[in-house]
C-alpha cells in the first residue's frame, strides 16, 4: 500500500480522534486499518491559548476513530511553547465550559433549521463524521 505509515514508525505523532481528543506518543506499529500502537502516550487538551498534559502510557488506538496522524516536527514544536501550560484541573474545567457553549450553539442551530424545514440532518440523526 502506497500510503502506509512506515515512515512514521518510531516517530513522535499527534493523533486526533473523531471525538476531538488528542494523544501524543511514539508510534511503534500500525496496520492497513490505521490501527496504531502508541508508546509513552500523553493526552493533551487545548482551550484557547492554554493546554495541559496527562501521562497515560501504552495505547492501542483503533483506526476507525482516527481523524489525523500528524508527525511532530521538532523545529515547529518550539512555536507551540508560546501556548500557556496550565494544570489538568484547570484545563478540564475550561474544556467542559467550552463544550457546553458549543452544544448550546449547535442545539440552537438545529432548532431554528428544523422549525424552518430547511434541514434533514436532525431527522437523520447523524454524526459529524
Amino acid at each position: 500500500m502506497s500510503s502506509g505509515l512506515g515512515d512514521e514508525v518510531d516517530k513522535k505523532l499527534i493523533v486526533v480522534l473523531r471525538d476531538g481528543r488528542k494523544f501524543i506518543g511514539i508510534m511503534r506499529t500500525f496496520d492497513q486499518f490505521a490501527n496504531i500502537v502508541l508508546q509513552d502516550t500523553i493526552e493533551r487538551i487545548y482551550v484557547g491559548d492554554c493546554y495541559s498534559d496527562k501521562n497515560l502510557g501504552l495505547f492501542f488506538i483503533r483506526g476507525d476513530n482516527v481523524v489525523i496522524l500528524g508527525e511532530i516536527d521538532p523545529d515547529k514544536e518550539v512555536q507551540e511553547k508560546k501556548l500557556k501550560k496550565v494544570s489538568w484541573e484547570e484545563i478540564t474545567k475550561a474544556a467542559a465550559l467550552e463544550k457546553i457553549k458549543k452544544e448550546e450553539e449547535e442545539q440552537l442551530k438545529r432548532r431554528v433549521m428544523t422549525e424552518s424545514g430547511l434541514t434533514i440532518d436532525s431527522i437523520l440523526n447523524i454524526d459529524d463524521f
Partner: peptide, 16 residues
C-alpha cells in the same frame, strides 16, 4: 487549531 502548529507532515483518514 493549535494542535496542528507543530505538525509538518500528516496522514488523513479518507473517511473524515
Amino acid at each position: 487549531y493549535p494542535y496542528m502548529i507543530s505538525v509538518k507532515n500528516c496522514f488523513i483518514r479518507g473517511s473524515v
